[in-house]
Simulated scan of single mutants.
Amino acid sequence: MLAIDHVAFGGSDLDDLRAVAETVGLPTEYGGPHGTGTTHMAVVGLPDGAYLELVAPTEDTDPADAGFWPAHLAADAGPAGWCLDVPDVAAAAKSAIDRGVRVDGPHEASRVRPDGTRVEWDMCFEGPDGDERLPFLIADRTPRSYRTTPDSGLVDSPLVGLAAVVLAVDDIGTSADLLTRRHRLPTPVDAAGPFDRLRVCPGSPVALAEAGDGGPLRERIEAVGEGPCAYLLGVDDFAAARERFSLGDPFAFGRDGDRRAAWFDHERFGGRLGVAERGD
């Protein structure tokens, strides 16, 4: 099963993103500025070791000049990129090239935490410029615990980790072929969920939402391109999650429609960040 290392949620103001997260019950920890000096981030450390990264331009940086996902940050678009941890970024990049996938990298990257700890990693982006359907890749050069640890306030919560990344795409078939060619994901099947044309890849945390001729998904793709449009954090007790976090009305999710899900109850997160019962 494809294991997601973390997902990035972007906006124009990090303090605002952190305040919204705290409002719905998600504790955050400031992670410091990236090595480019144009973005900084905060972490929501999930119990299984994965995490939600909140990322925004630094105070004196125009969002359009940000080193990561400038279009997403400028548009306050939320979901921006998803990441896989690999043993060797260079080897993974070669594998992508062998499969006919364009790569941007490997790159050396870093950030400095408020306690002065320097975090370093190698990374590589895959796919056409501005296309975030494929996950970017990361390999730590410092211990992964420098990058993230589970938040103590969430360890005993109903949250478990990441349940699903939903990708907004022009055509499900074309995107499914790309994901199969690169990461051997299975053929997606029809699924219940909050988007009209939704399919999930069985046994993986990936779902595809096809944009029609109009509507929010089409507007999103025109603004920031294809790629993540929503994240669902996994919970092992949906009723307890509704008591612990600020959530909206539940909806059915998944291949059989038997998993309950809900968006976090804030306009910045509605339709973009929520929870879902874990399942196949």
Rank of each mutant, 00 (worst) to 15 (best):
M1G: 14
L2M: 15
L2F: 01
I4F: 12
F9H: 07
G10T: 02
D13S: 11
L14S: 01
D16Y: 13
L17A: 10
R18C: 11
V24R: 04
G25N: 07
G32M: 05
P33C: 12
H34W: 10
T36W: 11
M41N: 15
M41E: 15
A42K: 06
V44N: 07
L46P: 03
P47T: 12
L52R: 03
L52W: 05
V55M: 15
A56N: 05
E59M: 05
D60V: 05
D60C: 05
T61W: 09
T61F: 06
T61D: 01
W69K: 10
W69L: 09
P70H: 07
P70W: 05
A71D: 13
H72M: 00
L73G: 06
A75K: 05
D76H: 11
A77N: 10
G78I: 00
C83D: 04
L84W: 02
L84D: 07
D88R: 00
K94F: 01
R99A: 13
G100I: 00
G100F: 00
R102Q: 14
P106C: 12
H107Y: 15
E108Y: 10
A109R: 09
T117V: 13
W121C: 00
D131P: 00
R133Q: 02
L137W: 15
S145M: 10
Y146K: 08
D151V: 05
D151S: 15
V160Q: 09
L162C: 01
L162V: 13
V166T: 12
V169N: 02
D171V: 10
D171C: 09
D177A: 15
L178K: 07
R182Y: 06
P188D: 04
A191Y: 09
A192H: 14
A192K: 09
A192E: 15
D196I: 00
L198I: 07
R199A: 12
C201S: 11
G203L: 12
A211T: 00
G212D: 10
G214V: 09
R220V: 02
E222H: 13
A223C: 08
V224R: 02
V224M: 03
P228E: 04
A230L: 03
Y231K: 06
L233W: 00
G234F: 03
D236W: 00
A239P: 04
A241D: 14
P250K: 03
R260D: 13
D265L: 08
H266L: 03
F269M: 12
G270Q: 15
R272V: 08
V275T: 12
A276K: 05
A276W: 05
A276L: 06
G279S: 11
